[in-house]
Design a protein around this nucleic acid. Structure first.
Lengths: 209, 209
DNA sequence: AAAAAAATTAAACAAATGTTTGATTTTAAT
DNA sequence: ATTAAAATCAAACATTTGTTTAATTTTTTT
């Protein structure tokens, strides 16, 4: 489905509020007020609050697939380079769309709407499959260990990034970095996360005495 | 505050429903019906739905402190042994109280009630301080690296366990282990998580060429 | 056994919820 | 300029929400 400007404006307002207050903690009137529109417009454009949520997932999940899959095809990159790019890709994606990933976490905990849960799991399964292929390739080339638990490895990547994203204010406070600008701190956090997770993955994937 | 049997029964029913449907997705009537009590009993015992949530946190957070702190004091254990015990302690705690930790995740995302947010952060800060001490001790003894990002390390532990707990059905499916009993799978998952995270921590903490 | 306290109940309360209606305005097509 | 379609609106709709009331039952104390 295609969304016009007004629909996207409503979706993005809802995205922010859902992330801040949760789906059930946000009323359609809250959304309407923040977006500067009439309440009836939500039903008019989306049918219901639930469908609005589905539209949000359609908008956000739709754009993910392409970049991840094009990664695998690139023959010029080594398996380890691909894994590292996957990590950076994930960090960038989550930090860029923080609100959406907060909502995603909420959805995975309280699995109510089957359509949304399906959309959320779709991303997860796709990722696992792509990475599994990547690992097998690396094992064939002899650069990766034979026994690798791909799911646990991905759980570490996803979990570490989510956790760091959700508690970034606390991380900033702990390191006394409230003085530096927001954008700068975000760049810093992303860089540290990148190095951190790459170190972890190296320990999981590569052979060493 | 002390809770009588009836209060604990209500709290534990609420805990299950809050985990399944979220705080705002659960009505006081839902709780009353599931607990087999009258709606008014919630206000009677706790004052409000919000206070019931606070009571839940009081009940659950209260019991955490002791075991973690007694770990540090034990002089017979090496820093690496203590770290490993901390990992197992955390895995056990989360898997034992899955509902509560699902709620915890929800609270950390949509930070509304300040009292609850404070209780949640209290655990986090306490943990970070204890672990920081532990790391410093290990560094003094020359068994740990000099540069360790404690927060990121803890984010990895907490994030990996949360992520694995929340998507355990998917993990089970992926590994074709639906046939083995629930309890057995949980033991298996905990053991794998333990090995996995200990490997990660070793890579972060110890020196190797 | 009488009195006091605690626990439990059905009913009522106002406020908030998602959604629909029907009229009105704005935009696009003829 | 006229008509048709799309967008917007205030108001109303029926439910559901958390909480309170006031009466009744159960338990404890005297």
């Amino acid at each position: 489905m295609e969304f016009n400007d007004k629909q996207i404006q409503i979706i993005e307002t809802a995205e922010r509020l859902f992330a801040e207050r949760g789906f059930d903690g946000t009323s359609v009137r809250d959304i309407a007020d923040e977006a500067g529109i009439n309440v009836a417009m939500i039903s008019y454009y989306f049918g219901s609050k639930e469908k609005l949520m589905e539209a949000l997932f359609e908008l956000r999940v739709g754009s993910v697939k392409i970049r991840v899959e094009s990664l695998l095809k690139d023959e010029s990159l080594s398996p380890i380079e691909k894994v590292n790019m996957l990590i950076d890709e994930h960090i960038e994606r989550v930090m860029q769309k923080q609100c959406f990933y907060k909502i995603m976490v909420g959805v995975l905990v309280t699995n109510k709407n089957p359509a949304i849960l399906k959309a959320a799991n779709q991303v997860k399964i796709r990722n696992a499959e792509v990475v599994s292929e990547l690992i097998k390739d690396g094992q064939k080339k002899g650069v990766f260990k034979k026994k690798v638990d791909v799911i646990l490895m991905l759980n570490t990547m996803v979990g570490t990034v989510s956790q760091s994203m959700m508690s970034q204010h606390y991380y900033r406070e702990f390191n006394n970095q409230q003085d530096i600008p927001d954008e700068e701190f975000e760049v810093l956090l992303k860089r540290r996360l990148s190095i951190h997770i790459k170190t972890l993955f190296k320990a999981i994937l590569t052979n060493e005495a």
